[in-house]
Amino acid sequence: MTLILHLILRLALWLLLAPLLPGIINKVKAWVAGRRGPPVLQLYYDLAKLWKKSVVLSQLASPGFVIGPAVGWVALVGAALLMPLGPAGSALSFRGDVLLLIYLLALARFCTAWAAMETGSAFEGMGAAREVSYAVLAEAAIIAAVLSLIVHTGSVSLITMLAPSPGAGAALLAAGLFTVLLAENCRVPFDDPNTHLELTMIHEAMVLDHSGPPLAVILHGASVKLLLFAVLLVQAVLPIGEMTPPAAAGALAAGVLLVTISVGLVESLLARLAFRRVPLLLTTAFLLCVFALLVAWKGDAT
């Protein structure tokens, strides 16, 4: 019984808190630009409204167009449930759960790309092609980061992997994972979530045709993914497992807030990269993770 209660609480935490992050980012951007900006809870209002709207389907779309977002959302929430939350531990932990997490993200990517291709629009094909191609480099960076944590802790399950402080390579790992966070969540400088030019979009181009509840599910899934990466980054860099539970919870919350604000600042201060530069930045992220791995290796060997 407590187990089920625990699970429900955890699920509620993820589902309810996630849409807060894009709101904070937008607030930070507005603050830097000297505007008032939309309310922090804007995404909640949007989601509620979209959930009630009717759906316009492309004439070419098959049921996969609606099933894709649903599967993608479940995959993202499942990945979030695998992620340990500081002192609260994790809902399900086993050896190799980190791989399930990575591949659940891949499942979400496949479903989004599949749903995008349903419409036969060139723009959505372009977005899908970009998404799956850039993910190749992002995946390499993520697995290098995971390997560095594995080398450091000698463990293959998330909960023990993320507990201790990551040692000397923390700064490298943080920089690498932050870049991956920006790329995977389609933020500036990889993609501009507010752009109005379809030719320059990645993620937004894939969801051009979605409307109503499927779009709500996609937007909510994207915010869960952002929160997931923020939590991963914070736990990988801070020694959450070595603190007392209240301190750990506080540190986690503060860390996530800091990451969110940084995303907002990056978005205000940087311009979007030219597409031919994206691989360069992703390669840099990969190399940062690789060097974190080598530092972990060398640091533990001596």
Partner: peptide, 12 residues
């Protein structure tokens, strides 16, 4: 989606 009403239209 079906309960909210499904319409078919041209791809955007």
């Amino acid at each position: 989606s079906a309960a909210n009403g499904l319409r078919r239209g041209l791809t955007w």
